[in-house]
């Protein structure tokens, strides 16, 4: 496929978008892993969740 004289610009913009999306996904997955780890550590310490309170507005 020939992208003409400005191929580098086209590829750079697509590449940067892919990179941004990858960074977003990395952020989401790393964050998930961190929270899961914290939750399992707390569970190992025996900290229980509060019983759901009904009267909270």
């Amino acid at each position: 496929m020939d992208l003409g004289p400005h191929a580098s610009f086209i590829l750079a913009s697509y590449g940067l978008c892919v990179l941004t999306v990858l960074v977003l996904f990395a952020w989401v997955f790393l964050d998930k892993a961190a929270q899961d780890k914290a939750l399992s550590e707390l569970a190992a310490q025996g900290v229980k969740r509060a019983q759901p309170k009904k009267e909270r507005s």
């Binding site: 998930k32 929270q35 310490q45 969740r49």
Partner: peptide, 18 residues
């Protein structure tokens, strides 16, 4: 990201409880 945020708050409230 919302799921992460819900989990983060759960961690926070558990830590406060602890």
């Amino acid at each position: 990201a919302m799921r992460n945020e819900v989990l983060r708050r759960r961690v926070r409230s558990l830590r406060l409880r602890a």
